[in-house]
Design a binder for these strands. Structure first.
Lengths: 208, 208
DNA sequence: GTGATTTCAGAACAATCGTTCCGTAACTTG
DNA sequence: CAAGTTACGGAACGATTGTTCTGAAATCAC
């Protein structure tokens, strides 16, 4: 027996795939640089449906950011484990950051730290979204540091160390945007791991 | 005797001030988000003159970036000295980064790491400009580290440490863009100084 | 089959976009 | 003064922009 379907004409596109296409275009061209005409074409979504589904260009942009966070940023954060020593997990985290930042040779970089950050200049909704995304990343990193026994009473609190680790990730994303290759960014990532571990209160470089 | 003037009608605006206005608008709205109409109005520059002087919107944007680098980024880099210990100079550098990143409450952040980075997505000229700006900053930081005796044969080379320091600065700029206040970013900056100094081959925290 | 519902193709809209152009204005030179 | 030069105000241009609308298409329920 065929599965029950909602009434009305069936959709001619897959929403996930459509959002992936929007992610690509927004990341390459930015928010203002990606016209709705072109978004509709590359998403293969009819104009009226785009407005029905997302309310307009702003809603689409936020949906694309959410899609990017769920499909691209979440795996990067998952690399933090805990699945090995803190050193191993930080190294895996930055490897994942570099892989994400340089995945698209045509338009390297990050939807959040390039397009959303720019659009956040004068759009309060986008700025709130940017703040929420950055806060979520820093919380995740801080949780990993504390799972490694990083004491909140330490000289460098886990929260500050996590903010530093997130800052480094954002800076790497921007370097990739400028065309720097992953191989060239690797020494920086390695230096980052060493530097962060040196802040660890236990001082043990491989502390898990 | 009055100073000799070039022939023709005198200009009705100051080019430096005009570019400062362009910097403000581009930083707040981004490249695509800042219309030429509004740029002319806020710069107080006639449209035809803008095209004569800068060739068009792209040329104006690059001129604004150059103005920003000369008037805003150069003082930040000057804070590196050498005018004190390496620790003091790094602390002064990040203080200056935070001051610059949070100077405009309406549109915090950095023209280079927010607007130029976004516009660099699909404009090869802008991407080259972004790469040049980042390379210049990293060179300047590396020179300061080497002036402090950082050995190029060290486990973490001065070039990698400088790239890390620049990455952190960029990440702080983006955090400011999301609305984070300077006071909240200070612990991150302090952790950055400590982390960088821990990479120093001499291992002496205040090494000059 | 009809009616209801959802989706679609395409047109239309007012406003905006970056660029060009031209007559007038404001100066210097001879 | 006239001629030459540079700057300006404002209009014009073709193209683009985000949004809305409508009749047709594709489905389900009765």
């Amino acid at each position: 027996m065929a599965e029950a379907r909602a009434r009305g004409r069936p959709r001619g596109f897959d929403e996930g795939r459509a959002l992936d296409a929007a992610v690509r275009l927004f990341r390459a061209e930015g928010y203002d640089g990606a016209p709705v005409d072109r978004l509709c074409r590359e998403m293969r979504v009819p104009r009226a449906t785009l407005y029905d589904l997302f309310g307009g260009k702003e809603g689409l942009f936020l949906a694309a950011v959410a899609r990017y966070a769920d499909t691209r940023i979440a795996p990067v954060l998952a690399a933090l484990g805990p699945s090995g020593t803190l050193r191993d997990d930080l190294a895996a985290f930055y490897d994942a950051v570099l892989a994400l930042a340089t995945a698209d040779r045509e338009a390297p970089g990050c939807l959040v730290s390039c397009a959303l950050a720019d659009a956040a200049g004068s759009n309060t909704g986008f700025r709130a979204e940017l703040a929420a995304r950055y806060a979520a990343m820093e919380r995740r990193i801080a949780a990993r540091l504390m799972a490694a026994g990083w004491d909140v009473q330490a000289a460098t609190q886990p929260k500050a160390a996590a903010a530093l680790a997130a800052s480094i990730a954002r800076g790497l994303m921007l370097a990739a945007r400028s065309g720097t290759e992953a191989a060239q960014l690797r020494p920086t990532a390695e230096a980052a791991v060493g530097a962060l571990l040196a802040l660890h209160p236990e001082g043990s470089p491989g502390h898990g």
